[in-house]
């Protein structure tokens, strides 16, 4: 159970970063930390004590395998995470070219 709690604390760390930081790049890093904690949680609930990786051994049918469903979900989500992070970066450099700063509070003041 400790692992689940630590995983949640990792999520909260990311949330803290998103709320308190003003630098856009740090906000992007904090968002990906939150994303990683979700991946980790999904991989954790699929684990089975004494299980092996989900590649079937045809010679030995009695093995126990870890749950393949959360792994399949996370597999696609990781690649989507890369695409969304890249999109965030594209927005961030557009903003930097227009306002010349990463600070969201200054951007709010500059408006226009």
């Amino acid at each position: 159970m400790t692992v689940y709690w630590l995983c949640f604390i990792l999520f909260l760390t990311g949330l803290y970063g998103v709320i308190t930081r003003r630098n856009l790049i740090k906000i992007a890093i904090s968002l990906s930390v939150m994303e990683f904690s979700c991946f980790l949680f999904l991989a954790l609930i699929g684990y089975k004590e004494g299980g092996v990786a989900p590649i079937v051994d045809l010679a030995d049918p009695d093995k126990t395998y870890v749950d393949p469903l959360p792994q399949a979900m996370v597999l696609t989500a990781i690649v989507i995470g890369l695409a969304t992070t890249a999109m965030l970066m594209a927005v961030i450099i557009r903003i930097y070219r227009k306002y010349g700063t990463f600070d969201i509070r200054e951007i709010k003041n500059l408006r226009g």
Binding site: M1, T2, V3, Y4, L44, I45, G46, Y47, K48, E49, G51, P54, I55, V56, L58, Y65, V66, D67, P68, L69, Q71, A72, L75
Partner: peptide
């Protein structure tokens, strides 16, 4: 608790999956 996967879906995806899909890699 950690290490005791309690999801009922897992059995459906593991048992007999090789006959249904023909793929050794369950993922």
């Amino acid at each position: 608790p950690f290490g005791e996967n309690s999801m009922r879906m897992a059995d459906a995806y593991v048992n007999g999956a090789v006959e249904k899909t023909g793929s050794i890699n369950l993922v």
